[in-house]
């Protein structure tokens, strides 16, 4: 087992899959000569050449659409958004083209492609660069949505996404690229719709994805000092959602806090809360709690930015509410 960064894990996944299948290409802004705005595509141009690692001008709508068209006729594009913030100018291609093509064509044209890039608030980059759009994309039938939290998950999940015959929205944690995790030397794949228990516990279940998994693990550590054992479940795949693994944990602990970095209204956590009450009503000992960012565009000032996003103490407070400790 090697310890590698989340960034290296993603790079390895693309590298290995591109070696397997000549139909895979990577297209996006600065993915080639610049080696990626976040260096996720480091060295790929050197290895695979400009035919397969394609620098696109700033035209997300155009190159996302080129990806969809190429996928319709059998190529397997990986379209990198420099960040998911910029996907909004290409959302027509993701929602109206990629997600609907198989259905619209009566099952004739599938779209085997991955849209990927960093997602979620970074550090002091302001409201237009600090957003988390998984709730938008998870709403759309025809898409799959993955959000890994660790290097291990990132590699196994991206390889699965690249091999998928349908469009995948793959959102990487912008602040997770330097985090490290143990990754096996051999090949492994993590399937869609498979949540992962990141820490076992018996008193309460914390459900999260992407960077909020780390926040929950830190909260669990803090609460353990008070004798409260949290089970932390990483959703990993938002669509399809692994309701079974989540519900099994909630039925075991009887309590649930859902933590997301996105906005509260119609956030994905609300769907998870619905599923948990639907499947665990008789086992719940307290109302399900949600922790989200505040319902505001992200401010720039560092103190305000921290205040807006869920922090360890917010999660701890929600746990204590759910345990009727305050």
């Amino acid at each position: 087992m090697a310890v590698i960064t989340y960034r290296e894990a993603l790079n390895q996944a693309m590298r290995e899959e591109m070696e397997r299948d000549a139909n895979i290409f990577v297209m996006g802004e600065e993915v080639g000569y610049y080696n990626g705005a976040y260096k996720v595509t480091q060295g790929l141009l050197q290895k695979f050449g400009p035919k397969r690692i394609i620098d696109a001008p700033i035209a997300e709508l155009g190159f996302a659409g080129i990806g969809v068209g190429a996928a319709m006729v059998g190529l397997r594009p990986i379209i990198e958004f420099m960040t998911w913030n910029f996907s909004l100018v290409a959302i027509d291609q993701i929602v109206n083209a990629a997600a609907k093509m198989f259905q619209m064509s009566g099952g004739q044209y599938n779209v085997p492609m991955v849209f990927r890039g960093p997602s979620g608030p970074a550090v002091q980059v302001g409201s237009q660069h600090s957003q988390s759009f998984e709730s938008f994309y998870a709403n759309v039938p025809g898409l799959k949505v993955m959000m890994p939290s660790t290097a291990y998950d990132a590699k196994g999940m991206l390889k699965t996404a690249i091999r998928e015959d349908n469009p995948v929205v793959f959102m990487e944690g912008e602040t997770l690229y330097n985090t490290t995790w143990e990754v096996p030397d051999g090949e492994y794949l993590i399937p869609f719709g498979k949540a992962d228990v990141k820490r076992e516990g018996k008193h309460i279940t914390l459900i999260a994805w992407s960077k909020m998994v780390w926040t929950c693990l830190d909260a669990a550590k803090a609460l353990a000092a008070d004798g409260i054992e949290c089970e932390v479940v990483d959703v990993r795949s938002l669509r399809p959602l692994d309701v079974d693994t989540l519900a099994t944990s909630v039925r075991k602990t009887g309590r649930c806090v859902i933590v997301e970095v996105g906005w509260p209204v119609a956030g994905f956590g609300a769907e998870v809360a619905y599923q948990m009450q639907r499947h665990c009503m008789d086992a719940l000992d307290a109302p399900i709690e949600r922790v989200t960012s505040d319902d505001v565009p992200m401010p720039y000032a560092k103190n305000l930015e921290i205040e807006v996003q869920p922090q360890v103490n917010d999660v701890v407070a929600a746990v204590r509410r759910a345990l009727y400790l305050e």
Binding site: F63, M72, A97, Q108
Partner: peptide
Amino acid sequence: HLFDKATNFLGGHGIVGGHVPLGAGAAFA
């Protein structure tokens, strides 16, 4: 939304201009 793979007809698209990059994508392929 008429589509026909057998004759390489890539569709009938309802969002004005949205299909133009798709055509470029087929040509890219």
